[in-house]
Design a protein around this nucleic acid. Sequence first.
DNA 1: CGAACCCTTGACAACTGTCAATCACCGTGG
DNA 2: CCACGGTGATTGACAGTTGTCAAGGGTTCG
Lengths: 260, 260
Amino acid sequence: MCDSSVISLKTQPTMKAIPAASIHRLDKPHPCDVCFQSRFCLPIALPQDELSRMRDIMQSTIRLGKGERLFEAGQAMDKVFSVHAGSFKSVVGSPDGRQQIVGFHVPGEMMGLEGFSARLYMTDVLALEDSEACEIDVRVLESTARDIPTLQHQIHCLIGNRLARAQQDQFVLGSMQADERLARFLLDLSERYKARGLSPDEFVLRMSREEIGSYLGLKLETVSRLMSRFHQAGLVHVAQRQVRITNRDGLAELLVPQER
Amino acid sequence: MCDSSVISLKTQPTMKAIPAASIHRLDKPHPCDVCFQSRFCLPIALPQDELSRMRDIMQSTIRLGKGERLFEAGQAMDKVFSVHAGSFKSVVGSPDGRQQIVGFHVPGEMMGLEGFSARLYMTDVLALEDSEACEIDVRVLESTARDIPTLQHQIHCLIGNRLARAQQDQFVLGSMQADERLARFLLDLSERYKARGLSPDEFVLRMSREEIGSYLGLKLETVSRLMSRFHQAGLVHVAQRQVRITNRDGLAELLVPQER
DNA sequence: CGAACCCTTGACAACTGTCAATCACCGTGG
DNA sequence: CCACGGTGATTGACAGTTGTCAAGGGTTCG
């Protein structure tokens, strides 16, 4: 009943041989409690007196090579993951083989939440570079949440967050022109790096032009052309995947095109 | 912290004078327990021995006239709603005044879930026709969920569901052509009416061409043209908002365009 | 019965996709 | 160390889908 309102779940890709998840488990670290959360980029924090339960929730850390798959659509969803290091992409596929990236994930963000729908993952998640993900057992998470209202609250917040993002993306895909989409993408990335304590003005894209295009509903040529145009307009300095935002306001103005 | 990854939250529309929420509360009905859930189209069911707590969760039923607003983006989110009767739309806006519909809601579906993100609604929700919504206090819902694992499970399922739908919509907006989008929209609606026990083959659209276009990232003229084309191709019989699907397979074939 | 709103249809323009050629970068191996 | 091949990025020319503008017809509701 719970999944009645979602149509056309992709069950199996089985097309390209995606590198088997050659997963290396790290030792389960013993948290020094306070720094535990920030050390592992977990977007979950427990109240002081419950800190010790952190180690129940977080099972282990998984290391993935570039291009390796964390999970795939159709698998039973027994875990959710947070990005510890590196970056990932979420891919939705359709039966006819087309694919679309519906999200990129940087450290501190959760993956696999859409699996709560039917206890099945609905996306493929792949590492964009050598990365690490923290594994969280859903069963343990839920039972712990029953004791700790704060945690329950945070779970709702995390899924709601992902939903709010997806709705924003719907707006971008449905209402914005190509140049606005790319400008928003760059500003969004910048903001997320900033939230991570990294430079918001200079960063390296971890995804190809084609992947950016897939996420933004554009072709790679269009993305490439726009990057060049932004560069020539002095908005950003782009050299391959190296990006430096040189005129943030100029970029932001692209998002408010009506007043000229 | 929880909302750090969502950008550009629309705070205020305040442009058009949307009919003030002239809300009429119905008497809080005393549930006859078993039939309670289905009678109110609540997508929430409790185990037998907890049925009596249903009435705690469901506060009251709200009646809205066509075009009236259930809640708006930026408001504190203290309740979620399920559609009892009628239909609604969720609208995302941007600071420059552009708007996009990110979802339509028919009976038995939940609204306001994206508010879990920051405890603020992120969309405007308006009635497409005279409608009724069931009001659920989030605080009560969460505290009840702490006692009843089944309920906790269902909450996760409901939000996850909405997320999975949003990701599907991202795919539609980003990867599909106009005709595929409309075909999918019609089949999706059909499926949802069917799940509600209504005819999957003949129904009345509750939304205008413009609203369909907004949801699908198209202009109303494009929607209108495609409706005519589908009609001429014998796929559907369309007369204004009255729709009868006459060739379901033909419609479905539009969604798998690669093999010809 | 009339006005407002919605829908339909046409002609044309604009944006983005397609196809193709070339260039830049990176890792491999001679 | 340099040559080489492969992948990804850039750029151009052109085509196609969808948006824009405009006119006209239908439906609904007071």
